[in-house]
Nucleic acid binder design. Structure first.
Lengths: 198, 198, 198, 198
DNA sequence: GATGAATGAGTCTTCATTCAT
DNA sequence: GATGAATGAAGACTCATTCAT
């Protein structure tokens, strides 16, 4: 049975990220991950229940760090506007910082089957609640529109950040992703409308 | 060789949509599609080069109709605001109208391999250019902000619509997707900001 | 049922030789032969029972002409030595004259299955009997050794001519095959032994 | 990757010989070979790259033993005549000793495609060089005719032995192949000519 | 006689997982 | 705990042949 945690647990997770980023999801065989991690094929199964468990754990681990970083940064934020700005910034900054991970989460892991993606969505919920929290507080403090649909607003934030990052990855990460934080933040806050009187 | 078009061409495409929607991408064997279409396995290969070609053609056909519908509707639109509104409306309306197709485009087809998704992105470009056209004209007519980044704005529109639709599909299409057109349009035009003075 | 003979019978046979020579045995589909012959796939089956029947008929036709040519030439031969010499000459001469046919009989047709090759051997018997006739008469006239094993001698003639021709075909017919008639004839008549006192 | 050699490597090779001999080349499925060898289908691929690799390796292994046996025997040969005699003897003796192998090499393997046969010809070269060596030395020692064409002579030896063996296999190995060594040797050395004064 | 669209049986190979050592 | 050899299920595609027109 999968005895999570151990010296080799992280080795295997990181090996999985590299193998998937370099070979693609469908060419990321367990034996390849084992080799990259420097362990035997069978050893994988001492730490993970099955292949899917590697991928879920990978997402869990990396997403955990991802959200923790953002939460920490948000503690410094005074206003709602700053919170939204920091969230956008941190989202793009962190993915820009680890391109292999970005390739895996934006492209490769989406080739997983329906079940795995359901599990990934479960893990994402923690992150989505951070977004919803900002939205709720934004409405309470009258910074955001009173008729703002919270769920839709959350989908707009996530959908936009996701699409922006995916486009960057598909352009081989050639331009500065982090630099897009400001305009993205502006669009989320003010939309496309003319800001003549803003 | 694939002799596209014929009475059975559409049968096969539609069979593929149903089989994928009901069984999932990885359980959509060619033999299952053939059976659903009421033809022999070999007949598939008189109309399509290989399995991937069925999926690409499926996307091409359906996306073609999709964009045509939107283009037609936009002809009636006077103002830029109406154009944006109609685009959002038609996008959600059309996917709401064919739930099997929505499942296939929002969930199943994304499990395809890198190459197939590249091909799909090529086909999407036509749709994305419709969006960019609205944004450009919106800036020219000073309805949209002059400093609006056109590429990012397009990514925001598409990312938001995509995320909204995907969430709807993952909730088993239980609620009224089309009804979200107005709030989504509002958010795209005005953002989250309070509209006290709007 | 196969209504042998007709204006298109020969067209199809010759198309088969060309298609097999240019594409190889395993790439010589019925539809390709039909196209080369300028007829519809189904038309093939008005003249031949099945694909195997095309190949057998091909061999039958071409082998018939082949043996007739040799028989005619042998009528001019006075001595046994001349008969053996003419047989070797004509064998190599005729295959050298039609390289496509040589490729088909020496290389491609040998990839056929056991049954087809049994049928081909039946057809070959007529040719082999020509050889055996020379050997028998050679022994009767004391030109050949009295203890010569007739069957083995026939196998030596055929095996040698076949190997010589196959080697020539595998070297892309680059050298003059017919020029080898004399040394081959000499070896068959006198063997490898020194001819100091011959 | 094919990790050649191991306890099961030979099992699989020998199973392939039996399966091909008993079922014919085109009915020798990998699963049938695996079953005969007493291993799982997948195990085949731990030892061989693909099906073709089994057949090439089979030929390589068996041909290697074949040539080694002949080379060893030739070491005992004093004269050129003895060398030629031993080569003929060993060739026929070894094929007579393993009828299944004879069926495979004389009949079934020839149904392989062009590429495989090219590979087989490469392996054969080693054997052909043994023959050429005898011929060259035979000319140097004036045992063979000075005007003997070495390449043609080699083709005569191989063509004759091959045809003799194939005829024997096609007659279901019903007679004594080895007993033909002497007359075949005689024909190669002296040809068909009358030996009145020999 | 001629057509050619339709049929459908048949097989090699991969790779996640196990378990004896 | 660690190993890695062995397992075996599963699916896309080809092409000889038919038969309605």
């Amino acid at each position: 049975m999968a005895t999570k945690r151990g010296p080799k647990y992280d080795q295997i997770i990181n090996a999985a990220v590299n193998v998937i980023a370099q070979n693609g999801y469908h060419q990321a065989q367990v034996s390849k991950i084992a080799k990259e991690a420097g362990v035997a094929d069978g050893t994988i199964y001492l730490y993970f229940k099955n292949k899917e468990d590697i991928l879920i754990s990978l997402f869990e681990e990396k997403m955990g760090e991802f959200v923790d970083q953002i939460r920490t940064k948000l503690l410094d934020a005074g206003t709602i506007e700053e919170q939204l700005q920091y969230l956008v910034e941190m989202h793009l900054k962190q993915l820009a910082a680890d391109k292999n991970l970005a390739v895996v989460t934006q492209l490769e892991l989406r080739q997983s089957n329906y079940d795995l993606r359901q599990r990934i969505n479960e893990i994402l919920k923690d992150y989505l609640s951070v977004m919803e929290n900002i939205i709720t507080k934004g409405k309470e403090s009258h910074v955001f529109a009173q008729d703002l649909n919270e769920k839709l607003a959350r989908q707009m934030i996530f959908g936009t950040l996701d699409e922006v990052t995916t486009n960057w990855v598909m352009k081989d990460c050639k331009y500065d992703l982090e630099a897009l934080s400001k305009p993205v933040y502006d669009m989320l806050l003010h939309g496309f409308g003319s800001r003549v009187n803003a």
